[in-house]
Design a protein around this nucleic acid. Sequence first.
DNA 1: CCCTTGATTAACTTGACAGCTAAGTAACCG
DNA 2: CGGTTACTTAGCTGTCAAGTTAATCAAGGG
Lengths: 126, 126
Amino acid sequence: MTMLEDRLGATFIALADPTRRAIVARLAAGDATVNELAAPFDMTLPGISKHLKVLERCGLITRTRHAQFRPCHLEADVLDSAIDWMQQNRRIWSERFDKLDSRLRELQRPTNDVSQKPARQRKSHE
Amino acid sequence: MTMLEDRLGATFIALADPTRRAIVARLAAGDATVNELAAPFDMTLPGISKHLKVLERCGLITRTRHAQFRPCHLEADVLDSAIDWMQQNRRIWSERFDKLDSRLRELQRPTNDVSQKPARQRKSHE
DNA sequence: CCCTTGATTAACTTGACAGCTAAGTAACCG
DNA sequence: CGGTTACTTAGCTGTCAAGTTAATCAAGGG
């Protein structure tokens, strides 16, 4: 349940770990085998293997088979999805400045009628 | 140590949770009080309070005080940092296509010349 | 054929985190 | 004042993730 979260969540979870971010950065420069990816880290191979599994689970990487080697490949689409989510909120946030935040202004008035109304959205233009 | 990770990691951790992403999305549309943020969720107020603390820890939100209210404010800079990291790797990944991946091609040759580095695997048994 | 290399699976420990309830703090209201 | 509103802090629990070692699989090479 908790584990089967949406892909976006899984992507952020994957990127939350510094080791995995380093792996992603490495793979951005080109495909690599597990041993190559493990080289820079002071970590056992199974540890790296687990990290790769996390990256694979959210679709950030794919793995093919070549003899004993399992070269890893970065999939940019998933990265794009995460970027999209952030940029969209970033954009909304920017646009917000155009129409001054009335919700908070109301809070600042002495008349405090600001109870727990749903007020999902602030009614800006009036 | 593990807990005091870098800000980038903390940001991704913060965005990994769906509740916190929803809170961020809500705050992108305008500042809000804790009760307002809590309203859409089937969760107790302390739960929301914890989530806000996580968002605050990585700098994604700031909180001021106004009477009994603690309006939350989204800080876009931190969002930008995370976007930047992703886009940079995304860009490197794109550029990689210009110069065909030679590393993997080498793997695909019959000559097994792949391990340029001695694997630093821990051998438990000599 | 073994044996080495590359990588994974299994089992376990540790520590963080999400959620809860109950109690505490802080400001305002009557 | 006392009570209400808004929120936080303090425990507690269950779950999950990160790391380890030991054992295993799968493919080549002598």
